[in-house]
Amino acid sequence: MNAPFEVPVVDISPYVRGGTDAERAVTADAMDTACRTVGFVQVVGHAVPDEAAADLASAVDDFFALPLETKKQLCAPKGVNRGYTPPKSENLSLSLGLQAADRMNDFFEAFNTGAAVADYPDASVPLDPALYPENLWPAESLVPGFRQRVQTWEAQAGRVARTLTAVFADALGLEPDWFRGVTGHSLDVLRMNNYALPPGTVDLDGDLTGMGEHTDYGIVTVLWADQVPGLQVLGRDGHWHDVVPADGALLVNLGDAMARWTNERWMSTLHRVKPPVVDGSIQRRRSVAFFHDGDVDAVVTALPGTVEDGEEPLYPPVTIGEHISAKLAGSRDLQENTDAVREAARVLASAR
Rank of each mutant, 00 (worst) to 15 (best):
A161W: 04
Y315N: 02
P304K: 03
A52D: 11
T113V: 15
R191D: 01
L92E: 09
A289Q: 06
R159P: 01
Y195Q: 00
T37L: 10
P317V: 08
Y15Q: 05
I324D: 04
P8D: 12
R265S: 07
F290R: 00
T319C: 08
N194K: 05
Y15T: 06
E312V: 11
V202N: 11
T113D: 00
E109L: 08
A101P: 03
E109K: 05
T306I: 11
V125N: 04
Q156D: 12
P8R: 09
A115I: 12
E6N: 13
S13Y: 04
R17G: 10
K88H: 07
R180D: 15
V341I: 14
S325C: 14
T70L: 14
Q99L: 15
T215S: 10
A171D: 09
R82I: 09
Q227V: 03
R346D: 03
I219A: 03
L187M: 12
S141P: 01
R342F: 08
R260Q: 15
V143S: 14
G18L: 07
D61H: 14
L74Q: 12
V228T: 15
G18E: 05
E134S: 10
A349T: 00
L98G: 00
V220P: 06
L94H: 05
F179A: 08
V307K: 05
V300W: 01
A289F: 01
R342M: 11
K71Y: 05
M31Q: 09
G145Y: 13
V80F: 08
E154R: 01
Q335G: 13
W240L: 08
G210W: 01
Q73H: 14
D207G: 00
R24G: 14
G280Y: 00
T221R: 00
V9W: 05
G218C: 08
A326D: 12
P199F: 03
F291Q: 04
T201R: 14
A161Y: 09
R147L: 06
G19C: 07
G145K: 11
L303W: 13
F40W: 08
H239F: 13
P317E: 10
I282P: 03
Q151D: 04
L66I: 15
P245W: 03
N263K: 03
I219K: 02
W137E: 08
L66N: 14
E175L: 08
P87E: 04
H214C: 10
K72A: 04
R346T: 09
S287Q: 06
V26F: 04
F291D: 10
G305C: 13
M267D: 09
D256E: 12
A329L: 12
L136R: 11
D177L: 03
M1Q: 09
E90T: 13
S124I: 02
